[in-house]
Simulated assay, not measured.
Amino acid sequence: MVALAVALAGGGAVAALRPPNAPPPEHSVAPTVEPTHAGPVQRPPAELTYPPDPLARLANPATVALSSRPVQRALALFQPLNQEYRADGPVRILGDDGVVRSLDVVTPAPTRDRGGNEAPAVKPGVLSPDGRSIAFAQTNELILVDLATAGVRRIPLHGYLELVLWSVDRVLVGGDDGAYAVDRVSSASTPLDVSAWDLVAPDPEAGREAALVEVGGEREGLLLRSRTPRDGAVRTEQRVTDGMLPSPYRVNEFYGRGWLHGERLARAAWITSAELDGAEGVAVLDARTGAVSHVLDLGRDRWKACCEVLGWDDRGAVLIRSKPGGLLRWQPETGEVTGVVRDLTGTVALAG
Rank of each mutant, 00 (worst) to 15 (best):
V106H: 09
D314G: 08
G178A: 09
V100M: 06
T345C: 08
T345H: 11
G98F: 04
A22M: 11
R302M: 10
W312R: 06
P23I: 15
R132T: 15
L310G: 07
E84C: 10
S167M: 06
R101W: 07
L192M: 12
R227E: 01
A188G: 14
L212N: 05
R57L: 10
R114N: 12
S67I: 12
V71E: 06
V2L: 11
T49F: 03
E162A: 15
G316Q: 03
D96T: 15
G258R: 03
A9H: 12
A210F: 00
V282S: 02
L165T: 15
F254V: 09
G316Y: 00
P35E: 10
G316M: 03
L212E: 05
R86Y: 06
Q238C: 12
P110L: 13
G316E: 01
A135Q: 03
W166D: 06
G151K: 08
A56D: 11
D286N: 15
A13L: 13
V284A: 04
V105C: 07
A206N: 06
G178W: 01
E280I: 07
V340Y: 00
T149L: 12
P52G: 04
L17W: 10
T63F: 03
G278K: 05
G256R: 07
E336Q: 05
T334W: 04
V105W: 05
A148V: 09
E280R: 07
G116P: 09
R208V: 13
G278V: 00
G299K: 00
L224Y: 01
Y255S: 15
V295N: 10
P248Q: 10
P44R: 14
D286I: 09
A317L: 01
P61W: 10
L75H: 07
Q79I: 10
S128L: 05
A76S: 06
